[in-house]
Amino acid sequence: MIRRLLAMAAVGLGIMAYGLVRVEPWPSLFGLTPIIVSQLWQIDRFVAVYEEGLRRAAAAGS
């Protein structure tokens, strides 16, 4: 899953770089969107993994 999120961010980076080189705001913003979304999604996945670890630790301790 992390590789897919990194690929999504890489595509956004390419679009954003194109917009920055051409000094056009819309490709820059359009490229920034998948970067931000992929980072937020990645944070969500890490939180889910952390909470699963807490649940397993609580079950093992009981």
Score class of each variant (00 low, 15 high):
residue 34 P to F: 02
residue 20 L to C: 07
residue 10 A to H: 00
residue 45 R to D: 06
residue 1 M to Q: 15
residue 57 A to C: 00
residue 54 L to N: 13
residue 47 V to A: 00
residue 23 V to Q: 08
residue 44 D to C: 00
residue 46 F to G: 00
residue 25 P to H: 10
residue 45 R to N: 05
residue 34 P to R: 02
residue 48 A to F: 09
residue 19 G to Y: 02
residue 6 L to W: 03
residue 26 W to V: 05
residue 31 G to L: 08
residue 53 G to D: 10
residue 2 I to W: 11
residue 46 F to K: 02
residue 60 A to M: 08
residue 23 V to R: 09
residue 31 G to R: 12
residue 44 D to I: 00
residue 27 P to Q: 06
residue 60 A to H: 12
residue 13 L to Q: 01
residue 19 G to V: 04
residue 53 G to Y: 04
residue 7 A to D: 08
residue 53 G to T: 03
residue 19 G to C: 14
residue 34 P to T: 05
residue 8 M to Q: 07
residue 14 G to P: 09
residue 48 A to W: 13
residue 39 Q to A: 11
residue 16 M to R: 15
residue 39 Q to M: 13
residue 3 R to F: 03
residue 17 A to I: 08
residue 55 R to Q: 03
residue 5 L to F: 01
residue 21 V to Y: 11
residue 47 V to P: 01
residue 27 P to V: 02
residue 2 I to A: 08
residue 60 A to W: 11
residue 42 Q to V: 00
residue 43 I to Y: 10
residue 58 A to T: 11
residue 2 I to D: 13
residue 39 Q to N: 07
residue 60 A to C: 06
residue 35 I to H: 08
residue 2 I to P: 01
residue 47 V to M: 11
residue 4 R to D: 04
residue 38 S to M: 01
residue 15 I to E: 04
residue 23 V to T: 05
residue 12 G to Y: 07
residue 28 S to G: 04
residue 24 E to V: 07
residue 58 A to Q: 13
residue 56 R to W: 04
residue 17 A to Q: 07
residue 52 E to M: 12
residue 62 S to F: 07
residue 5 L to M: 07
residue 11 V to A: 08
residue 18 Y to A: 12
residue 61 G to Y: 12
residue 37 V to S: 02
residue 56 R to P: 02
residue 18 Y to L: 15
residue 57 A to L: 12
residue 52 E to P: 07
residue 18 Y to E: 00
residue 7 A to F: 06
residue 5 L to Q: 15
residue 18 Y to F: 15
residue 9 A to D: 09
residue 30 F to Q: 03
residue 13 L to H: 00
residue 36 I to H: 08
residue 44 D to K: 10
residue 4 R to S: 05
residue 23 V to G: 01
residue 1 M to C: 12
residue 25 P to V: 14
residue 40 L to M: 11
residue 59 A to I: 03
residue 22 R to D: 11
residue 9 A to L: 00
residue 62 S to W: 05
residue 41 W to Q: 06
residue 50 Y to A: 14
residue 12 G to T: 01
residue 56 R to L: 14
residue 32 L to H: 04
residue 19 G to I: 03
residue 17 A to Y: 13
residue 12 G to V: 01
residue 49 V to K: 06
residue 48 A to M: 14
residue 62 S to V: 13
residue 27 P to Y: 10
residue 52 E to L: 15
residue 10 A to D: 07
residue 60 A to L: 07
residue 9 A to E: 01
residue 12 G to R: 04
residue 55 R to A: 12
residue 16 M to A: 15
residue 30 F to C: 04
residue 33 T to D: 03
residue 13 L to S: 09
residue 8 M to W: 02
residue 11 V to P: 03
residue 38 S to P: 10
residue 16 M to I: 05
residue 17 A to S: 15
residue 46 F to D: 11
residue 44 D to H: 11
residue 33 T to M: 14
residue 44 D to M: 01
residue 35 I to N: 02
residue 21 V to D: 11
residue 22 R to P: 00
residue 39 Q to I: 10
residue 40 L to D: 02
residue 15 I to S: 03
residue 40 L to P: 00
residue 62 S to M: 08
residue 24 E to Y: 08
residue 10 A to P: 01
residue 20 L to F: 09
residue 19 G to D: 03
residue 35 I to M: 14
residue 22 R to E: 13
residue 49 V to S: 03
residue 20 L to N: 08
residue 33 T to G: 05
residue 32 L to D: 04
